[in-house]
């Protein structure tokens, strides 16, 4: 058992998979000699050498193309796209190439690859280094979308992503890099498509993911203490595949659904969840489906502004208190 930060978990996750399988290679900008701009990949070059841990030019299309071609021909490559905002310059490789190739070729081509990236806001970086791309990714049939909220989950879900035979976008929430958690020794693998129930309560179900998980948990504690409202908190962990069954079970039991989403509201993943719930268990509901999300704007940089846009613990408590009233 050790206490690890999410940042440290990234390095351990990659090393775990590279030790296990010589076909795993890792590339990205500044990831090898410098150990990554978030210092999450320090030591990998020393352990695995320059043929497996590769510093690339600033060529996002070349990077994603390289892992796609390598994965078609026997390797299990991992690429880092430094900030998820940068997917916008290589989105063709994701949407038109990786996502469509197996289907178009009638199953001839497998693409066991992982695209890991620093995602989300909260660090006062401004609009071009704070994007939440989970909704973009989820909207593309053929890409799995994973977003861990704890160091242990990061390792386990990363291992499953590398071992999966389909392309995965692996979202590391930058705002969580410094957060810590207990991680046991030895190999950790967690299945994709299985949500975690982080807290149980009878009055409402909060469905969330990533950076919003610790905020939702803190909000749930406060709601319990201050208002006597007891909430279940579901950490989805993966958006594709989606553990809809877990959501439906918990919302049926509590009768209320709140989503807490870091992404801009319009067409966010919570809309899909709300639509599934409305469609399939409408008569189990005791009140409206409520989405708590970042508004429909690019993220502002200054702390005072950014904190008022991304759902905060206060905002979550306030919304749930009001809407449950």
């Amino acid at each position: 058992m050790a206490e690890l930060s999410l940042r440290e978990a990234v390095g351990r996750a990659i090393a775990q998979e590279m030790r296990r399988d010589p076909n795993v290679v890792f590339m990205g900008e500044d990831v090898a000699a410098a150990g990554g701009v978030f210092k999450s990949t320090v030591g990998l070059l020393e352990e695995f050498g320059p043929e497996r841990v590769i510093d690339t030019p600033i060529s996002e299309q070349a990077i994603l193309g390289a892992i796609m071609g390598a994965s078609m021909t026997g390797l299990r490559p991992i690429a880092e796209i430094m900030y998820s905002d940068f997917f916008a310059v290589c989105w063709d490789l994701v949407v038109n190439q990786m996502a469509k190739t197996r289907y178009m070729t009638n199953g001839q081509v497998s693409l066991p690859l992982v695209m890991k990236t620093g995602n989300g806001g909260g660090l006062r970086f401004g609009a071009q280094h704070s994007q939440s791309i989970e909704n973009w990714a989820m909207a593309v049939p053929g890409i799995k979308v994973v977003m861990p909220s704890t160091p242990r989950d990061l390792i386990g879900l990363f291992a499953a992503s590398v071992r999966d035979d389909d392309p995965v976008i692996f979202l590391e929430q930058k705002a969580l890099y410094a957060s810590k958690g207990e991680v046991e020794d030895g190999e950790i693998v967690e299945p994709l498509g299985k949500a975690a129930i982080r807290r149980q309560g009878g009055d409402a179900t909060i469905v969330t993911i990533g950076t919003m998980v610790p905020r939702a948990l803190e909000a749930a504690d406060r709601l319990h203490q201050e208002e006597g409202i007891s909430c279940t908190v579901i950490d989805l962990r993966t958006l594709i595949p989606l553990d809809a069954a877990c959501v439906l079970d918990m919302v049926s039991a509590t009768g209320r659904l709140f989503t807490v989403e870091e992404n801009p509201r319009v067409l966010g993943w919570g809309a899909e969840i709300a639509s599934i719930v409305a469609d399939e268990i409408f008569y189990d509901l005791d009140g409206p489906l409520v989405r708590i999300a970042t508004p429909y704007i690019p993220l502002p940089a200054a702390g005072e502004l950014e904190d008022k846009t991304i759902p905060s613990v206060d905002a979550i408590v306030e919304t749930i208190r009001k809407r449950m009233g």
Partner: peptide, 22 residues
């Protein structure tokens, strides 16, 4: 025959990946 690609230019980086694997 590893594919015919209809987005201009996309397959050059992909072909690199196959070469990298070789």
């Amino acid at each position: 025959m590893m594919g015919s690609y209809a987005i201009v230019g996309a397959h050059l980086p992909i072909a690199n990946g196959a070469a990298l694997s070789a």
